[in-house]
Amino acid sequence: MQHSSNTHSPEVTFHHAPGDSASTIKKIVRTTVILSVITLIELALGFGIYMLHKNPDPSHALILFIKGVIVILSLLKAFYIVGVFMHLGDEVKNMIMTIVVPLMLFIWFIAAFLWDGNAWRNLRNTDAGHRPAKQEQVTKPVDAKKPGGIE
């Protein structure tokens, strides 16, 4: 059941069929075209943002929407690089999960920290950052001779 051509490690039980060269090359070329086209779309959208900024009063909702689209396109590029170029899609499912599941932490990580950044900006824009402490320091004389006083 082993492919004799590159059996090299007793740890590896089966090899992915190397496949005929032509079909693999075809897949690589197709992925290259997809990555390039996505990049070109991203650049076009980036240029669109640039043009919108020339307007003295650009629509911020539209710019935010375009940025969101660019983020999704980048994730798509990441999917193709990891899945096809790095062949993660061809591995055993358990192995894929040990990589992908820990990366789910990023969902919390990004949401929590950007939220925090936004909260800082709100503090910056209100007096909360500069507000003097309300309670005045109360200094009571301490009797050194009483128990509990300073020696």
Binding site: S9, E11, V12, F14, E91, V92, M95, I99
Partner: peptide, 20 residues
């Protein structure tokens, strides 16, 4: 035992975890 449950050679698996 005797085989990688992830069907992957040790060095390559560790490369994946390093990259993660």
């Amino acid at each position: 035992g005797g085989r990688s449950p992830f069907n992957m050679e040790y060095g390559k698996l560790m490369m994946w975890y390093f990259l993660m």
